[in-house]
């Protein structure tokens, strides 16, 4: 018998044996295989359900995060507007005040606001938030002093300037 024919027969026999073995094994473990298939289906269903629930939760979280960012941006815009108002009030009420000084106060407040919101160090952020609040308080006090009856009107916002020169913490 020629050699290639022998090889072909050998290969065919090998395939046949493997097929038979596999069929026998499947028959012997049919129950286990069914059980496994069923468990796989259940697991797939569970995974699908968990993914759906997760998707709903994540969508809600993203929506909340977007709203929170919107709220923060609104607050920030209000702070910026309050700085602009402060500058306008200073120029209006302190007639003798040089404009560059009002611009300097605006710049100082904006820098504090920047650090209060964007500094990567949380402690620094907190410190600058408190300094920003103190500055705005000093400005308000200066403007209130101006409108107080009987008081000697001041040419410059002294408390604000003192705060900027770090005389008041």
């Amino acid at each position: 018998m020629p050699l290639p024919e022998n090889i072909a027969r050998f290969v065919a026999r090998l395939i046949n044996t493997m097929k038979t073995e596999s069929a026998d094994w499947q028959l012997a473990h049919q129950a286990d295989l069914d059980k496994l298939r069923e468990e796989k289906l259940v697991a797939e269903q569970e995974l699908k359900q968990r993914l759906e629930l997760m998707e709903i939760r994540f969508k809600e979280e993203c929506k909340r995060a977007r709203l929170e960012e919107e709220r923060q941006t609104e607050n920030f815009t209000e702070f910026l507007a309050s700085i602009d108002d402060m500058k306008a009030n200073m120029l209006e009420y302190y007639g003798a005040m040089p404009k560059p000084m009002a611009l300097m106060i605006h710049h100082h407040a904006a820098e504090l606001l920047k650090d209060a919101w964007h500094n990567p160090d949380a402690r620094e952020r907190l410190r600058n938030q408190s300094r920003f609040t103190s500055l705005m308080l000093a400005v308000t006090e200066d403007l209130t002093d101006l409108s107080r009856d009987g008081a000697q009107p001041k040419a410059l916002p002294e408390k604000t300037i003192a705060f900027m020169q770090n005389k008041i913490e």
Partner: peptide, 8 residues
């Protein structure tokens, strides 16, 4: 927010 601050 950074853009808003920069504009101001």
């Amino acid at each position: 927010r950074k853009r808003l601050l920069l504009a101001s």
